[in-house]
Simulated scan of single mutants.
Amino acid sequence: MVAEQEGTFEANGHSLYTKSWLPDGPPKAKLIFIHGFSDHLGRYSNFFPQLASRGIAVHGLDQRGWGRSVRKPGDRGHTGPTTQVLADMAAFITPHLPADPAAGPPVFVMGHSMGGGQVLTLACHPDYQESVVRRVRGWLLESPFISFSPEEQPSALKVFAGRLAGMLLPRHQLKHEIKPEHLTRDPEVRKSLVEDELMHNTGTLEGLAGLLDRTAALAKGEVRPLEGGALRSLWVGHGTEDKTTWFEASKRYFDKFTGAVADREFKAYEGWYHQLHADGPDSEEFYRDVGDWILKRCNEDQPQAKPGERPESKL
């Protein structure tokens, strides 16, 4: 039995919508989830209950400017600069972290698409290594935005003009619609994407500029896990036929820049599109992969009995 709880989270005076999916009984792990561009928590109604049914509590928020955190049209896409984006994430993650890692369920952080790029940027940021990163057991990226796919790549002129305009009119809103047929192979999901009123496909020039800058820094390897840093475990999953973010860029980043992470895994989903969590019946495999990866690390962290001893039971 999975319980769902809605609430709000106050981030620097801004109220953000939150939702949790809780297992029946004490959680084995906690997963903090960060969604992508023009996305919201309601789009994961199959994925999160599956994880909760295996004992993984899932906690997420509709980010500033997205989903149910938008209160008026002027809020759409108003994420603020990258410093604000990272601060919001860190503020949301921190209360879920146990003061003593041995005393509570391990915490994992996962991001999809734009959220994957944000999560990776946070995990590599020197200012958050001790306060957040070291206290997180593992980080997961679903189709992370490390580069546009060839199908979605904007022209250099458009990028330059957008950055220049962003400095002059940071809150000016701009539509950026991603074709539903580029997101998933499932026709029913495509239909629901078109009909979803919470997916407004609107960013501010400031927010879009920050998104482009984060992506460029990741693609160039300027942002990468720190040698001797606190990023302990990393999982990356990406569809080879993703038409929104680029599989090749994720694989290249993983191969070139994650050597400082001892426990790391890259999963290529052959023929899959962008939304691994909503790509038709095959998505059950993705649910299993994520759950297995998390639970394996929970089990590894449990004290192991010495030969000839019986494991200590917990009443």
Rank of each mutant, 00 (worst) to 15 (best):
H112I: 06
S53H: 14
P225S: 05
S283D: 13
P26T: 03
W235E: 03
T8A: 03
E181G: 05
K179L: 15
N201L: 13
S149Y: 13
R171N: 15
D263I: 07
L140Y: 03
G36I: 04
E241Q: 15
D301T: 02
G117F: 00
H172T: 08
V133K: 00
A103C: 14
G13K: 04
F257I: 03
P170R: 06
D75K: 06
L16V: 00
R134H: 12
N201Y: 15
G221R: 07
E206N: 12
G67C: 12
W139F: 15
A123F: 01
K314R: 15
I34C: 10
C124G: 06
G221P: 11
N12D: 08
S69E: 00
S250C: 04
R224L: 12
F37C: 02
P154K: 02
L174Y: 13
L122S: 00
H40E: 00
P154V: 03
H172P: 09
Q304R: 15
F266C: 03
Q50R: 15
F286P: 12
G36N: 10
H238I: 05
P150R: 04
T8P: 09
G80P: 11
G203T: 14
K30P: 00
F92C: 07
F257T: 04
R134N: 08
L61N: 12
L61Q: 13
D62T: 06
H78N: 12
S313N: 03
L205T: 12
A102K: 13
Q118M: 07
L51T: 06
L218P: 09
E312L: 14
L86A: 11
W66D: 15
E181L: 01
R310E: 15
R190F: 11
H59I: 10
M199Q: 13
E227I: 02
K175S: 13
T202D: 12
V236M: 07
F148V: 03
K220F: 00
E284S: 10
A216Q: 11
F37G: 09
A3E: 13
A209F: 02
H14R: 06
Q84R: 08
D186P: 10
H14D: 00
Q304W: 05
